[in-house]
Amino acid sequence: MAQKHNVIVAALLAAIAMVMPALAQENTPNDPRLFTPGKLTVSTSEPSYPPWVLDNNPESGEGFEAALVYALAEQLGFKREDVVWVDVTFDGAIAPGPKNYDFSIQQISVTPERAKVATFSDVYYQSDKAVIALPDSAVASAKSFADLKQARWGVAVGTTDFDYVTNVLGIDNAAVYDDQAGVFQALQGGQIDATIAALPTALYATAVQVPEAKITALLPKDPKDEGLALLFASGNPIVPWINEGLAAIRDNGTIDELVQKYLVADPNIPVISE
């Protein structure tokens, strides 16, 4: 009996000895739970657009989300060269199933539907909404939600922009397009008067995609839009560690500095709140 007991104890000790080194490395850059231990593997879209990523080059660390990733990586103990970027479409990022990266960052809004098949980090940014319209549109002089409801609206299907136009502005006849590019084409072609987007997206759109349009008003944050977060495969165990890093760079002012650098609009743009 004593011999059997000793064998069991030895086996347990051996198992503990095997597990302890891995446990000791959790929440460090060598965490065995990372997609590639020693690396922080991050997905974003190809192409990536300003002001989230500048010059379609996340490795530069320029642009709000690219810079945020490198600030987070440094906080977690990674060297700059240990951040690895992979290209994944938005649809691929939010699809259920395993991921070939640690998390995705590409302006992914937290929604209950997505949270059923993926795990989100804490929110890193929540944006105002911006009205995008041509300067000669009646929308350009709108002062209230009632004025906005007189316009012909267009939005991309399945987006928080669609939800906002429908549920907050109370517009139930908006034209629906497959993607934002289709919305902008309709705006340029005079098929719609206005669309809506998160402020940073609107800044880029009016600078590059539809430079003839402008941001005509800012609207309140969507109470049902929880904001943007990093997206992980469902149940990924590194999420609490990543959240600790996000909390640290939020508390030390880094995220606010990046917002001021990349995501601030013209202070003269009017605000419509009701």
Rank of each mutant, 00 (worst) to 15 (best):
Q3F: 07
N100R: 13
P237H: 14
A146L: 06
V7T: 10
D256V: 09
L13H: 06
F103N: 05
K116W: 06
P96D: 11
E46A: 12
A140I: 03
I196L: 15
Q188N: 15
I255W: 01
N100W: 07
D82E: 15
K214Y: 06
E244W: 05
V42H: 00
T36P: 03
A174C: 04
I94F: 14
K129A: 01
G182L: 10
A67N: 01
D31R: 04
L199I: 12
V155G: 03
E257W: 02
E26A: 10
Q180V: 07
K143R: 13
A73D: 04
K143V: 12
I105C: 05
I255A: 02
N6H: 07
Q191A: 14
L134W: 03
Q191R: 15
L228M: 13
E62V: 11
G235N: 15
H5Y: 08
S104R: 14
K4H: 09
D193L: 06
E74Y: 03
K99F: 09
Y101P: 00
D147K: 09
P98K: 13
M1T: 09
E74K: 15
F78P: 00
F232M: 14
V83R: 02
Q191T: 10
E26N: 12
T28K: 04
A142M: 11
G190L: 12
A207Q: 14
I255G: 00
N268F: 06
A71S: 08
W52S: 07
D178R: 11
E274C: 06
L12C: 14
V83P: 01
P237N: 13
M18R: 04
Q107I: 14
A217V: 08
K143Q: 12
P223V: 08
I192S: 02
Q191H: 11
V69A: 02
Y49N: 07
E113I: 08
F78Q: 01
Q185Y: 15
T254L: 09
S48V: 03
W52Y: 11
E59Q: 14
N27L: 06
I269K: 05
A73H: 01
L263G: 12
Q185T: 15
Y164V: 07
N173D: 14
S144I: 10
L230Q: 05
K221L: 07
A229K: 02
N100H: 13
A202V: 02
D128S: 08
A17K: 09
Q3Y: 13
I94D: 03
D172G: 12
T89F: 15
E257T: 06
